[in-house]
Amino acid sequence: MKKSDFRFDLPVELIAQEPLAERSASRLLVLDAQARTRADRRLNELPDLLAPGDLLVFNDTRVLPARLHGRKASGGMVEILLERVTGAHEAIAQMRASKKPKQGATIELADGSTIEVLGREGEFFRLRFAADEPLEKRLLQLGRMPLPPYIEREAGPADEARYQTVFAREPGAVAAPTAGLHFDAPLLDRLVAHGIEVGHITLHVGAGTFQPMRAERLDQHVMHREWLNVGAELVEKVRRTRARGGRVIAVGTTVVRALESATRNGALEPFAGETQIFIFPGYRFSSVDGLLTNFHLSESTLLMLVCAFAGREFVLAAYRHAVEQRYRFFSYGDAMLVLPRVTSP
C-alpha cells in the first residue's frame, strides 16, 4: 500500500486551535464496522454507548514542558524540542537554528546551564544536560508545553493543564495522548458508576508522532521508537474482562500500540521497553476490541492504524462525513468511537 491511499482533504479552519471550555463537551462520531453504520453523538454520552463489564484502557503518561530555547557559543539562538528522554540527563531532540550545531558544541540555557551535543541520529540530535539537577526539574523550570505544529500559536498558561490528561502521572512524553484529553472527573465517575472498569498503561509519546512519512510505500517506512510499560495489574484486568465477555476499549492509538506490542503469541503479557510497531491495514489485532481516538492527519501512521482497525474505505468515508459535518480535528478536536466487532461471552 502507499501513503497516498490514506489522503483526505481537510479545510484548515477545521483544525482546532483551542480546547473547548469543557473536556467532555466534544462531539463523538460512532463507527460500527460490523454493521457498517455511523452516528453523530456527544462524548458525554459515552457511558450509554459502552456496556457494563467493558474495560477502558488509558495512557497515563505525563507531558513534559519539552520546548526549550538556548544560545550557541557563537551567539546564535537555538530552539530545542525533545523527542524523548533517554537517560537521567540525556535526551534526543529536534533542533532549529540558522546553522545546526556540530558534535561537541555546547548550548547555554536561560539559567546558565549548558547542553552538550553528543552527536546525530538521523534528523535528531543526542544531547547531554548538566548533571547538577534532574532533567525533569530543569524542564519544569525552563521549558514550555510543546504544542503540535498544526496549532499555530504559542503555548499559553491554559495549555499547561489542558494539554495534559486529568490522570497523567508518569512523566516522559513530549506530546499528549490526545484521546484522553476528552475525559474529566465527572465523566470518569459516570463510567465507573455504569459498571465500566478502567485501567492504565504508560507510553511516552515522542515528537516523532508528528513526523510525516517520507517513504511512499508503507513497507519502506521506519517507525520512530517510543517507550512503554504494560503492567501485570492491567494484564490481569484484560484477562478478567475477556473472561466475563466484556470488551477492551483502547483510549487512543498509543494504547493500541502498547497493548499490541505487549502481546506474545496471541496473549497479553507484562512488558516494559521500546516499541517501533507500525500498524496498517492487514494487521490482525489481538488485544483490543474497540478504539476511542481523535481525528488524525492525512497520510499519517495514526490514520493507518485506525484504518487497519475498521477498514480503509469505511474510515475515510467517516472522515469525509466529519468534514461535511464540521467536526473539529486533531489534538484539541473531536473524537471517534470505533467498534469493529462484538465480543460474546
Rank of each mutant, 00 (worst) to 15 (best):
A105I: 05
F280H: 08
L302V: 05
P340V: 15
L188P: 08
M223F: 15
A258G: 13
M77T: 07
A318I: 12
D289W: 05
L82Q: 00
G199N: 14
A310M: 02
I15Y: 03
L303I: 03
L43W: 11
L191W: 01
A176N: 07
R144G: 01
V192M: 12
V306C: 15
G122N: 08
D60T: 00
N59Q: 05
R38L: 06
H182M: 06
R23W: 15
L49M: 05
P134E: 07
V230F: 10
M1I: 12
M336T: 06
T253D: 08
A66R: 02
A179W: 10
T343Y: 11
L337Q: 14
R341V: 04
V192G: 12
Q220P: 15
G252E: 13
P345Q: 12
L118Y: 02
K237Y: 03
A168L: 00
L139W: 01
Y319E: 15
L147H: 09
R144K: 08
G245H: 05
P345M: 10
L302F: 08
A207G: 15
R42Q: 15
R7V: 08
E18V: 06
E274A: 02
L259E: 02
H224D: 13
E160G: 02
Y332Q: 04
T293R: 02
F271E: 04
R257D: 03
R71N: 05
E18D: 15
I107D: 03
R71A: 07
A161Q: 09
G231P: 00
I15M: 13
E299C: 14
G273M: 01
A21T: 07
A51N: 09
R214L: 15
Q17T: 09
R42F: 15
G282W: 10
E13V: 09
E216H: 12
D111K: 11
F330L: 13
V248G: 11
Y332W: 03
L234S: 10
R320C: 09
A318S: 09
A215H: 04
F58I: 13
V205F: 10
A335Q: 05
I80A: 11
S26I: 12
V174D: 08
I196W: 07
K137R: 12
G252S: 04
V288S: 09
N59S: 02
A176H: 15
F58R: 02
H321R: 15
E136Y: 11
V306Q: 03
A110F: 02
S287L: 09
N229Y: 14
G172Y: 07
R27C: 01
S4M: 14
R217F: 11
I201D: 06
A110H: 04
T263C: 04
N59K: 06
G252R: 07
R225M: 03
P157E: 11
R162W: 09
T301H: 00
V342W: 00
I249N: 03
F129N: 00
E274L: 01
A318Y: 12
N265Q: 11
Q164S: 02
L297P: 00
G333A: 05
R71S: 14
T275P: 01
F278P: 03
P157H: 06
